[in-house]
Write a protein that binds this DNA or RNA. Structure first.
Length: 545
RNA sequence: GGCCUUGUGGUCAAGCGGUUAAGACGGCGCCCUCUCACGGCGCAAUCCCGGGUUCGAUUCCCGGCAAGGUCACCA
């Protein structure tokens, strides 16, 4: 077999040599321990938590080590392409403070460009041609139907499905057979001629899993599709070699194809990068759990968190607690430190998939929001309201002074005694809404309508808008006493039967009348912010309601 | 089914031959208290199973079992 001639027939023309490429994409000039990592999404435009999860790991590893994080777009499958997807990825990750050093739509060092695989067709073909010349790759003319039939046959016979060994029909086609098909214009793909034997086990050190065993590959995988575009496996080997990736952090779904990649790197004569296969985020699905999926879990898209108004740092903190088991402890000790100071370690990454826990995220969110200053909170809420809020919510920001007072006095925002009532911007907006609008009552009065009217009327008649909280509450107590409610809680608890209720019930009437809700922050403060006129108006309405 | 990975409370997990088996979330209870929230205190709850090795296994070995992943001209 004249492989050289066949290679020329299959991929005609002159291509640069491997040495040319080595010179064109030289090793990066970086400090010794620096890691080059990458994110290599396909441009579907859909990013979810799992992508963010991996992105944070890659980003931390690269930047903690003084290395590079780049963005490569795996657009070899046209069917997956969505317009504007790359920008969407960059924007979504930017929201979580993940910045690339180079890559698609980023630019940076042009040495390793282009970062779209479609634009790198030449290099893949050059190496495919090389493999054919060496007899390590060959054309395959099998049609999809033939392959499907083969798979069926193998499955029926309970054999391992795939294109390998005796099933690799095009593997040993004679020269005459090959040229006959070529002359007939039959389409073909290029396959790797695998030299592996699955009986052989390889010990492999994975950066996150540790020592693992892999089985040698024996599948003659497709490296160039019939349109001349590489498959993932082939593109991965070439790109990660020439983009000089040092550590490939990727989802563990890739572990199964690691044998292919090992053989490909060897066949190509490239030194392998190190690999770290991180576990995937899981979701409880009925009785079992499964990997988060794009199809089934739209609520786990990053967009969901933006819409709800989760604070980006909170999501990041949660991801970090799942990513590095010692992060949580570190964060407890260093609540104010920038996240970038955490000594992120690949080895500390979990080996088994964690169930996504919304309760935990919510807890973190509350705490993160409670750390914001008034200005930060206002800016965050405003940004959210502008994009996702109702007209009314946008309007809250018109009265900035009231907004800041409400935030500070009632929510404790900016102070040391913080409330943690809300986990998201949308909740926060609902929580402060009664400062700006007269909301329909959401809670029922517990006291009888007559009692309610009497209490509210007396509140309006007596001077109850004192600028001192103690005096104000003294008045409320007085009203309670006058109407047969216990003014003192201890009294009430000791002799509940002597009273109609307690001052708590009286306060609740006032609270519902002015805010519509039975549960709010300190009522006196709320009244101060609303102003006497507004309070009188609201209570006046409530009397006759 | 083959191959690979993983198995500590409901969840995330520390631990790596001898521990009262950390901590966090959630749950429950108590305290604080005009409601809620915050805060404080406390409680319940875990080493997948079976064999070894060992004076001693959650930790090491083997075998089960279970869960997850993967077996495309998709990534």
């Amino acid at each position: 077999m004249n492989w050289k001639a066949l290679a020329e027939r299959l991929l005609p023309g002159k291509y640069p040599s491997p040495e040319d490429y080595e010179a064109k994409y030289p090793p990066r000039d970086l400090p010794e321990k620096a890691e080059v990592t990458r994110l290599a999404p396909s441009p579907t435009g859909f990013i979810h938590l799992g992508n963010l999860f991996a992105a944070i790991a890659n980003e931390r590893i690269a930047h903690r080590s003084g290395g590079i994080l780049y963005l490569r777009i795996e657009d070899t499958d046209l069917k997956r392409k969505v317009e504007g997807a790359v920008e969407a990825v960059i924007k979504a990750l930017h929201y979580f403070d993940i910045e690339f050093d180079e890559g698609a739509e980023i630019g940076g060092d042009e040495t390793y460009a282009p970062w779209y695989q479609r634009q790198r067709a030449e290099i893949y073909r050059a190496f495919a041609k090389r493999l054919i010349e060496e007899g390590r790759a060959y054309p395959c003319f099998c049609t999809e139907e033939e392959l499907a039939a083969l798979r069926e046959e193998q499955t029926a016979k309970k054999e391992i499905p795939g294109y390998y060994g005796k099933y690799a029909r095009c593997r040993d086609l004679s020269e005459a057979e090959i040229y006959a098909r070529l002359d007939a214009g039959k389409p073909f793909v290029i396959r790797l001629r695998s030299l592996g034997n699955p009986e052989n086990k390889i010990k492999f050190r994975d950066a996150v899993k540790g020592e693992i065993t892999v089985t040698e590959n024996d599948q003659d995988v497709v490296i160039l599709k019939s349109d001349g575009i590489p498959t993932y496996h082939f593109a991965h080997a070439i790109d990660d070699h020439f983009m000089r990736t040092t550590l490939v952090i990727r989802g563990e779904e890739w572990l199964a194809s690691l044998p292919i990649h090992i053989e490909l790197f060897d066949a190509l004569g490239f030194a392998r990068p190190r690999y770290g296969h991180n576990c995937s985020l899981m979701k409880q699905d009925g009785e079992t759990r499964r990997k988060l999926s794009k199809r089934k879990d739209p609520e786990l898209s990053l967009e969901f968190y933006r819409k709800e108004g989760y604070f980006p740092r909170a999501v990041k903190v949660y991801m970090l607690t799942l990513l590095n088991s010692n992060f949580e402890e570190w964060y407890l000790k260093n609540p104010e430190a920038p996240l970038t100071e955490f000594p992120f370690k690949v080895e500390k990454m979990g080996k088994s998939g964690a169930l996504f826990d919304l309760d935990k995220l919510n807890d973190i969110s509350k705490n993160e929001l409670a750390k914001l200053s008034q200005e930060e909170m206002a800016a965050f809420l405003k940004g959210w309201a502008e994009e996702f809020g109702s007209e009314a919510q946008k309007a809250y920001f018109a009265d900035e002074e009231k907004l800041l007072r409400a935030l500070a006095l009632c929510m404790g925002v900016g102070g040391k005694k913080r409330r943690k009532d809300f986990t998201t911007a949308s909740q926060a907006m609902n929580f402060i809404a009664y400062f700006f609008e007269r909301l329909p009552r959401t809670d029922e009065y517990r006291v009888a309508p007559g009692e309610k009217r009497a209490i509210l009327t007396e509140f309006l008649e007596t001077y109850c808008f004192a600028d001192d909280a103690q005096i104000w509450f003294g008045k409320v107590k007085a009203i309670a006493g006058a109407h047969g409610f216990a003014a003192d809680m201890k009294d009430y608890k000791e002799n509940p039967q002597t009273y109609k209720g307690s001052v708590a019930d009286v306060a609740e009437v006032l609270r519902i009348a002015t805010t519509g809700k039975a549960n709010t922050p300190d009522l006196w403060t709320i009244m101060q912010i609303l102003g006497e006129q507004e309070v009188r108006a609201r209570i006046g309405e409530a009397v006759n309601e």
